[in-house]
Computed example of a mutant assay.
Amino acid sequence: MAESDTIPKMSARGVNVFYGEKQAIQDVSIDVDLDNVTAFIGPSGCGKSTFLRTLNRMNDTVASARVEGKITLDGEDIYGANMDVVQLRARVGMVFQKPNPFPKTIYENVAYGPRIHGLASGKADLDQIVEKSLRRAGLWDEVKDRLNDSGTALSGGQQQRLCIARAIAVDPEVILMDEPCSALDPIATAKIEELILELRGNYAIVIVTHNMQQAARVSQRTAFFHLGRMVEQGPTTEIFTNPREERTKDYITGRYG
């Protein structure tokens, strides 16, 4: 898309998030684009997952949550009155920390979204979407002969790739990943990281991770969060080798975290 040269895929300006009286996020501004994987790093409870959830309005599900500031997708305000939230969540997919396949077959896990969004004109079309999504998630060869087995019967790493296939199946523009590897073993983690690198450029990808080595491996841009604020952001190599802020340096060198 040529427009990504000028307009970032997603843009946040002056975002504050409150849960009741408590402020969880203070004045965060960042752009997310198609060409770079963006990583959010920082200690537990620093607000990185809370901020991630504002990007597809997942905080709407929390009664006490209030979001201020402006977040746009292709220049359109996602908190605007005209924004269809169901449509937004199809365009901005989410992969959670713990793999959460539906208690359905592998096939139905992937077919579910395209079916409810009317993206397939018939069974053959749906079969094609399911295969393509599973291929993109690096899972097709492992499951092609067992599409009618339950998604929950897969290993943890396979379940997480199934969830990524499910997110991809509705043809999103952005994929948000909230610590997608924290429940996985090193081999499964390596597969997910490989997948993130392959998906880059097709989708704008944002990943929240506790694992700094992972951020260094998969992202091109990194934002460091601390106590509800974004302390700094920039090219990943710079953040890791030459951070401007003392707090970033302390976190990266392991003084706290």
Rank of each mutant, 00 (worst) to 15 (best):
A120D: 11
Q160C: 03
V143I: 11
V28L: 09
E21I: 10
D74Q: 09
T236F: 00
A24D: 06
L147W: 00
E76A: 11
V86I: 14
T241P: 01
I116V: 15
E198C: 02
L119T: 07
S44Y: 02
A111L: 10
S49K: 10
V231T: 14
A204F: 00
T222K: 13
I129D: 06
P101L: 05
Y19V: 02
V32N: 01
G42F: 01
G113S: 15
K98L: 07
D127E: 13
A188D: 03
P172N: 02
K22I: 12
Q213N: 13
R115A: 14
T189N: 09
P99Q: 05
Q158H: 07
A190N: 10
R221K: 15
H210E: 00
T105K: 09
I196G: 13
D141C: 03
A137R: 12
L162T: 07
Q220D: 15
S4G: 03
P235W: 13
V206E: 04
L197I: 11
S44N: 11
L55V: 05
Y107A: 02
P101D: 04
L55C: 06
K98M: 09
I196L: 13
D125Y: 04
G45H: 04
K104R: 14
G156D: 08
A90F: 00
A188L: 04
Y256N: 03
T222V: 10
T236P: 02
E194L: 08
D171S: 15
I106W: 01
R244C: 07
Q158P: 05
E245T: 06
E193N: 12
E131H: 04
R217C: 01
L52V: 04
G20E: 07
P8H: 04
S155G: 06
I25N: 07
G151Q: 09
D145R: 12
F18I: 02
V92W: 02
I25C: 06
L134I: 05
Q23E: 15
M83W: 00
F40L: 14
A63H: 12
I129A: 08
F51R: 11
G257V: 06
A215Y: 00
E142S: 13
S64L: 14
E246K: 15
P243A: 09
F240R: 10
T209R: 09
A2F: 12
V231N: 12
T6D: 12
E173S: 13
M94C: 04
E193W: 02
A111K: 09
